[in-house]
Amino acid sequence: MQFFFEVLIAGLLSGVMYALVALGYVLIYKASGVFNFAQGAMVFFAALTTAGLVDSGLSLWLAVPLTMVAMVVLGLLTEKFVLRPLVAQHEITLFMATIGLTFFIEGLAQAIWGANVRALDLGIEDVPLEWLLESANIAVSQFDLIASGIAAVLVTLLAIFFSKTKIGRALRAVADDHQAALSIGIPLQHIWGIVWAVAGFVALVAGLLWGARNGVQFALTFVALKALPVLILGGFTSVPGAIVGGLIIGASEKLAEVYLGPYVGGGIEGWFPYVLALLFLVVRPEGLFGERIIRRI
């Protein structure tokens, strides 16, 4: 039983971190209707840039703000050169453009920093929590706990940002109806710029946490890709959905790996979330929290 809880908690904690990546997708999708496939590449870019700066002698406290600046610039450039020319295009066209963007960003990151695996040390040790180990005999990684704490704080802050601030309200208006928002004087491109910058920030945090946990390498983009099943479960437009979806995916993939994996040769973490999401789609296409779509003609 203790083992079960260990696995479950580890899964839930990594689920929070999936939710963090998924949040980046939700932000951009809500504000501009673009499914930004490149979010994963942005996570990779952020992690690699920070690690690269640290490796070239900068302190972490300097590297992170510098990376943040780079992410904002990247976000703004994307908005200006990729999405603005494609405004009002079919959503699939936009989606494919972000796949192109993914390749571009991945290439850019590796052209600057090389393709080697880098370590990233945030100063948090990845050891089991002692008191929990002693009192309940359950091993829970201190790093995972702190990382999910950070992620949880960030998610909460963003939720408050969107519901309470003026920019947040404008953003929701834009998400509901671009033209109506424009007509009451909301500066659309300004808002989109902000959203891309925020998405860049989320990618940075996710990149730091995942990079420190798994090492900064190309495989990070696959971790980020796991945010897709999270979104399918949670719905593409829902922040709470992203969190719950993240927890479900994180927990179920770990449990499946530990309890089902041995029977089928292991390594099922790689596809289990996708198949789970796929089965879920067949039952409830709009996700847990998404709105039911009524087809009109």
Binding site: P85, Q89, F103, E106
Partner: peptide
């Protein structure tokens, strides 16, 4: 890496200019 960037840029270019 540059090859990846060129691929990505070409995709975006074609989608914008000649879908």
């Amino acid at each position: 890496s540059i090859e990846l960037m060129v691929f990505g840029a070409m995709i975006i270019f074609f989608l914008i200019v000649e879908p």
